[in-house]
Design a protein around this nucleic acid. Structure first.
Lengths: 197, 197, 197, 197
DNA sequence: ACCGACGGGACCTCCCGTTGTT
DNA sequence: AACAACGGGAGGTCCCGTCGGT
C-alpha cells in the first residue's frame, strides 16, 4: 500500500462523513480540506473533480451498507433469521453508524433523483444490489421451504427497503431511534406472520 | 388581493418546483429568477433572504401534502377507510404530483436532518402534524370500535409514514410507480388484517 | 444611453488595452478589475465570460483599425493616393496608437491561429474586411484608369497587409518607428513604380 | 551523450511544439508533461522554472529558423541568389514546418513585445541575428558588384523580414500558403528589379 | 413593486514549484 | 534521474444580497 493510496483512502473516509452529513451539493472542497487536513493540491492529486470524489465517497459508504447486510445474511442459516438479521442492520445507521448523517443510500437517492442523472444511475445500481440481496434470500427461503411459496420476493424487497429507509429517515430527522425500532418491529412481525412457513 | 401578494404567491409556486427538484442548497436565486421571470430586486422585495424563501416554499409544499391528507380523511367516515384513503394520497407524489421532485417533506427531512438545524425544526413540525393526523384517525377509530383497541396509534403512524415515504423515495429514484404501489398494497393489507376490527 | 451601457463601454475600452498589451490568455479578470476599478460582480454583469469580453474587446479594437483605414480612403479621391493614405494609417499603431500593445489584428491573429479556433474565425473575418478594403480600392483604381489594369488586387492586398503588419511587429518589438517607416516607404515606392499608371 | 542530456533535448523538442502552438503564457507545465510523457519532477530536474524552459524552447526553435537561413545562404554563391534562397526558407513555416504553430520568432515577438521585457530581450537578439544575415549578404553583394551600391542593407533587411513574417502570419491565420507565396513572389521581384545589378 | 447595476466573497479547478523517495 | 505527493495560491465563474432609480 503506497502512501498515495493511503491518503486517497483517508480522503474518502473523511469525505463520506462530510458529504453524508451536509449533502453533496452543499459540501465544498473547503469542507473536505478541513476534514482531511490537506490542501487543495493534495486532494486534487487523487481526485480530478468534486464529482469524482463524491462518487468515490458514495461507493465507499454504500459498500459498507451492503457489506453489513451481506454479513448479516451470512451470520444466519435460516432464511427467516436471515431476513430478520438483515433488517436489523438498518438500526446501525442510527445507533452505531459507520459514518455520520444517516443512511448514505437514502441520502444519495433523495438528493440525486431529480437533480443529478449521473449520480442517480450509481444510486440505482446500489439500490438494485440491496434489493437483489433480499430477493435472493427470499427465493432461497422458498426453495428450502422456510418461506411460503406464494410470497413475491420483489414485493418483499420493496416493502422491506421502503419501510426501513423510511424509518431511518424519521429517526434521522427526530434524532430518536424509536422510529427505526418501530419499523424493525413491524417488519419482524410481517416476516413471522406473513412470510415464515 | 394586491399585485404584490399575487407576485409573492407566484414566486413561491415556482420556487417550490425549483427547490424540490434541485434541493435547497443546490438551488440558486438565479434559478428562481429564471423560473419566475423576475429580476433579483423583484424577488428580494418579497423575501429578505434565500432562507426565508426556502421556508416559505417548504411551508407551501408541505401544506399541500397535509391538505391532501386532510381531504382524504374527510372524504371517508369509517376510520379504516380513512386510513386507506390517507395512504393513497402518497401515490400522487408519483402519479399526479402537485409539484415536481417527489415528496417535499421527505426531501426536506433528508436534506436538513444533519445539515440545517433551523430548517430541520420546521420539517419536524410538519412531520408532527402528519403523524398527528394518523394518530388522530387511529385513536378515533378505536373509540368508535372500528379499529382494534390494542393498536398503538403512535406505532401505526410511524409505520405508515416510514413505509409510504420509503416507497415514494424508491419510485422517485427509479421513476417507476411500482414501488409506491407495493407500499400502498402492503399497508392496506396491514390495515385490514391487523388494525380493522 | 443607460448607465449599464456606459459601464459596458468603459469596460471594453479598458479591456482593449489590457488584452492587447498582455495578450488574451495572459490577461486575467483581476487585470480587468484593476483597469476598470470594478469588482468581479460588476464585470460579469455585462459579460458572461472572459471569452465574451475578449471578443467584444477585439471587435472594438479591430473596429478602430478598420475605421481609420476607411477614413483614410475617404480622405482621398485618387486610387493611388487612397492606397498611400491607407498604408500610412498603420504608422499610428506605433506613433499615435488608439490603444497600447500594437496592432490588435496582428496580435489576435498570432495568438489565435493555432490555439483558439473560435477566436481565429473572428480574426479571419476582420482580416477579410481589411483585405476587401484594399482590393476594392485597387479594383476601382483600375476601372478609373488610375492603376495599371494588369494588377492583381488580391495579390496587392496580401503584399500590403503582410508588409505593414510585419513592419508593425518589428517596430513593436524594437520600440522603434524606423521599421514601420521603412515598410511604408517600400510600399509607397511599390505603389508609384508598379501600380500607378 | 548521457541519458539526462537526451531527456533534456527531448523535453525541449516537445516544448517547442506546445509553446509555439498555444503560446507561452497559455501553455502549462501539464501540457509539457502530457507532450513528453514525463512527470513534473522529471521536467524540473532539467529546468528550474517554466520560464527557463520557455527560453530554452525559444532558443531551440529560433536556432532552427536561423540555421535554415544560414544553410540557404551557403547553398548559393551569388548574393542575389542567396537572397532568393533566404526568402524561400520562410515558406517552410507553412509548407514543411520543423515544428507546429508558425514562425517561432514572429510568435515570440508578438507575445512578448509589450508583455514580457525579459523574453523580449531574447527575441530582439534573435531578430538582430536574422537581420544581420540579410545585411551581411546585401553588403557582400554590393562589394562583389552583384547588388546595386545604392542599396541600403538595413532597409532591405527590414523590408524582407517584415514582408516574410507578415506573409507567414497571414498563411498561419488562413491556413493557406497562398499568402506566403505572394510575399515571396513580391520580394523576389523586388530583388530582381530593384537590387540586382 | 420591480429592474438594473454592483460589491464582495465563495466555489471549483488548475497551476507552479518543492520535497521526499526510489 | 525520475516519480509521487503535496502546498499554496491564482484564475474564472457564480452567488447572495444591497441600493439607487423608476
Amino acid at each position: 500500500v503506497t502512501k498515495g493510496e493511503q491518503t486517497r483512502e483517508d480522503i474518502i473516509l473523511k469525505a463520506v462523513d462530510v458529504f453524508n452529513t451536509k449533502g453533496y451539493a452543499a459540501s465544498s472542497i473547503s469542507d473536505i480540506m478541513a476534514a482531511t487536513g490537506l490542501q487543495k493540491g493534495g486532494i486534487y492529486n487523487h481526485f480530478s473533480s468534486k464529482e469524482e470524489l463524491s462518487l468515490a465517497a458514495f461507493e465507499h459508504a454504500s459498500g459498507i451498507v451492503g457489506q453489513r447486510m451481506t454479513d448479516a445474511i451470512r451470520s444466519e442459516s435460516n432464511a427467516v433469521a436471515k431476513l430478520v438479521a438483515l433488517i436489523t442492520t438498518f438500526r446501525m445507521h442510527v445507533e452505531n453508524p459507520p459514518f455520520r448523517g444517516g443512511c448514505a443510500v437514502l441520502n444519495a437517492a433523495v438528493e440525486s433523483d431529480y437533480a443529478n442523472p449521473e449520480f442517480r444511475e450509481h444510486v440505482c445500481k446500489v439500490m438494485d444490489e440491496l434489493r437483489s440481496l433480499i430477493i435472493y434470500v427470499v427465493n432461497e427461503g422458498i426453495k428450502r421451504r422456510q418461506i411460503k411459496p406464494s410470497v413475491n420476493s420483489d414485493y418483499c424487497a420493496t416493502v422491506f427497503i421502503a419501510t426501513m429507509e423510511g424509518g431511518v429517515m424519521l429517526s434521522s430527522l427526530y434524532r430518536d431511534s424509536m422510529y427505526i425500532d418501530y419499523s424493525i418491529h413491524h417488519l419482524t412481525e410481517y416476516i413471522q406472520t406473513q412470510l415464515a412457513l
